[in-house]
């Protein structure tokens, strides 16, 4: 996966002046902006792999911002969504957060509030992508293990010693030691703690 150089913000608002002004403002902190006038065109066309966030106006002709938000969540889009509204009611705010909005801001929006929200959202997205990436790598390495090595790994993560593993699998401690070294090498783990942190979840989901 090739992460772009700088994060990309998708701005969806039907008002041209608002789009232009907000794009300019967001650009002052070095974020790239792609502005969309049509919610449907945005949903159909935006790059889902890009790192960044989405700024969505609640009140747009044709389709409500809340509906767009729900569609994004249903399609598994992981970019954080910041909602903008002209007259936010408590009810609308509640619905937005329930639907998975990361932030809810009132128009006219203050630059500090918007930019801070965007930077938080971007950081959050980057972290979540990194986690995904690490997970992806770990999964690939895990598939390279032999069945016996996977058994040994499961018992190591359960906290058993080599002796106990040998008894459980009816192997000599020496053989267990060989498997153990092979597991550490294949998975690229530097310590037992590292092994457990990165692979416990995969082992559990793999065995379930």
């Amino acid at each position: 996966m090739n992460a772009p150089l700088s994060p990309l913000i998708h701005l969806v608002d039907d008002d041209e002046a608002v789009r232009a002004a907000l794009s300019l403002l967001i650009g002052t902190v070095g974020l790239r902006v792609q502005a969309w006038a049509e919610p449907q065109a945005f949903i159909a066309g935006f790059d889902r792999n890009s790192i960044g966030a989405i700024v969505l106006d609640v009140r747009m002709p044709g389709v409500s911002g809340l509906t767009v938000l729900q569609q994004l969540v249903e399609q598994g889009v992981d970019q954080p969504v910041i909602m903008l509204t002209g007259h936010g009611t408590v009810d609308m705010c509640r619905r937005a957060f329930k639907s998975g909005a990361a932030e809810f801001l009132e128009k006219p929006v203050n630059d500090d509030a918007l930019l801070e929200a965007l930077q938080n959202a971007v950081r959050q997205h980057v972290r979540s992508r990194e986690r995904q990436q690490a997970n992806h790598v770990a999964r690939e390495r895990y598939t390279q293990l032999s069945p016996r090595e996977r058994e040994v790994l499961g018992l190591i993560i359960s906290g058993l010693t080599n002796k106990e593993i040998g008894r459980a699998l009816d192997l000599s401690p020496r053989t267990v030691e060989t498997h153990r070294a092979s597991v550490f090498a294949k998975l690229g783990a530097e310590s037992l703690a590292d092994l457990i942190r990165r692979y416990a979840a995969i082992v559990e989901s793999g065995e379930a």
């Binding site: 002004a21 002209g86 007259h87 128009k107 006219p108 929006v109 203050n110 630059d111």
Partner: peptide
Amino acid sequence: AAGMAHEVNQPLTAMLANTQAASRLLAE
């Protein structure tokens, strides 16, 4: 009132964003 709020809010949003962007650009 709701209609009026929206109609006035859009230019206000653009104004605020433009002026704040300008002041940031001038501070560079």
